[in-house]
Each structure stands twice: as C-alpha cells, then as structure tokens.
Amino acid sequence: MELSEEAATTAGDPAEPGTVRPGGRTARVRAAVLRAAGDTLAEQGFHQLDLAEIARRADVGKTTVYRRWGTVAGLVADLLTDMAEQSLPRTETGSLEEDLLANAELVRRTLTDPRQGALFKAVIAAATADGRTAEALHRFYEVRVAEWAPCVREAVERGELPEGTDAAEVVRAVSAPLYYRFLTTGEPLDTAAAGRAARAAVAAARAGAFVREPGHG
C-alpha cells in the first residue's frame, strides 16, 4: 500500500528479521541492504534476488547479509516489515468519505509509482509460491488495514455507519478494486478509479453490507 521513501533503521536476527532496533552502523547496513533488495525486486523480480548480489549492490559484506537474513525469503520478509513501518499514516478529516478517498488516493499513488508498483507486483507474485513471503505480505496488509480502521470506527461513533460495521472489511473494500485493476487489466489506475473505489465502499458500508453477523468478530 502507501509508502514513504525513507528506509527503516532497524535490524533483526535471521529467524525473525526486524524485531530489534539498534542504531548506528547496524541501522545503516539494514537500510542499504533493504534498499538494494527493493530496487532489485522492482527491476528484475523475485527470482533474480540473490543474497551475494544484494550484498555487492549494498556495498555490504556477504557474511553480514547471510548471517542477518539467512535466506531470500527472510530478506523479503524484513523488507515488507520495513515497508509497513514506513507507510504513511492515515488522513483524518472528520468525514468517512473524505478519509477513504484519501486512502484510495494513497493506494493509487503507490501502485502507479514506477518503483513501488513494480516492487508490489514482484512481491505478490512471489507470495503465491513462497509461504514465508506470503506470511510477510499478510502482516504488511494487516498493519496497513489497522492503521486506517479507526477512520471507520469513528464514523460508526458519529452515526455515519451502522453499529457493528467491520472496520477492517470497509478498508479492504477500498483497496480491492484498485489492486484488481492494477494486477489484471491494462487500464489506467487514475484518480477517477480511486474515487469510485472509495465511494463504492462508503455506499456499501452505509447500506450495512459490512455489518458483522452475530457470532462473527
């Protein structure tokens, strides 16, 4: 989804990258390696990722990269953790429609960015065949949905939406048509498409389409 351009400044062990937050040289090494991994994914795809080549591109010792990330899947998992941490915060306008329009526009800008769009295509493709990459991608979207869900909960509190509306499902409904268009058609992902996605999600939510059934959630 929507991302900032700054690299993260954390590091982790090979088993679970990104869980420790030292600074200094360790942070700079992680930032350089993740930047190199992201560039390679965007330019060449998942299957061209090679830890030795990433180390060369980041100007980091191979031993450091192998010790810290262990595998390509571990590196991609850490890259997705970093992307989630660095994603832009939600917009709060006081209006559900305006909030979700802002969300849709951020998603659109991310997917149409030459580097970020290509990176997401590569990661999504990899997730279909690699379990660890899939888990990391799921965590990425869980973080992003959780960031925007309060916009929906606040709309329920204001009386804009029915009680029991599933906030996460509303947020997902905004992104879903944008990702579908991005991945399956050659049609432009423009501001009009973003606007339609947001307005459709709002209309469905107001009609009660996302109200949780008793016993679910």
Rank of each mutant, 00 (worst) to 15 (best):
D130S: 01
R158V: 03
A201V: 11
E6S: 07
T184W: 10
A207Y: 01
G38Q: 10
L119M: 14
G94R: 02
D78P: 02
R57M: 02
L80S: 05
T10E: 11
V20W: 13
G45Q: 12
L80R: 09
L75R: 07
L96A: 10
V123K: 08
V174I: 08
E85N: 03
E169Y: 03
R67N: 13
G159H: 07
P188Y: 05
T26Q: 15
R181P: 01
A207H: 01
T26W: 04
P214V: 05
A192P: 02
A136L: 03
V72S: 03
A207G: 05
N103C: 12
G23W: 08
A167L: 10
A32D: 14
E53T: 07
T9G: 12
A209C: 08
P162Y: 00
A149M: 10
S175C: 04
D130H: 02
R67E: 13
E160T: 06
W69L: 06
V156W: 00
L106A: 07
V20S: 13
A129C: 00
T9H: 12
A126S: 01
D39L: 10
A194Y: 03
A104V: 11
T9Q: 14
L106H: 09
S175I: 06
Q116I: 14
A104I: 12
A32P: 03
R68M: 12
G61N: 12
T71W: 00
V33F: 00
G159T: 11
R206V: 04
A8N: 13
L137H: 08
G159D: 09
L100A: 08
P114A: 04
R181G: 03
G24K: 13
R68L: 08
L79T: 11
T110L: 09
L80F: 02
R68I: 12
T10M: 08
G164Q: 04
F120I: 12
L51K: 06
D13I: 14
T128I: 07
T9W: 13
V65I: 04
A193G: 01
L49Y: 07
A126R: 00
G195F: 03
Y180E: 14
W148I: 06
V107L: 11
S95R: 13
R90E: 12
E105M: 05
R56D: 15
R56K: 15
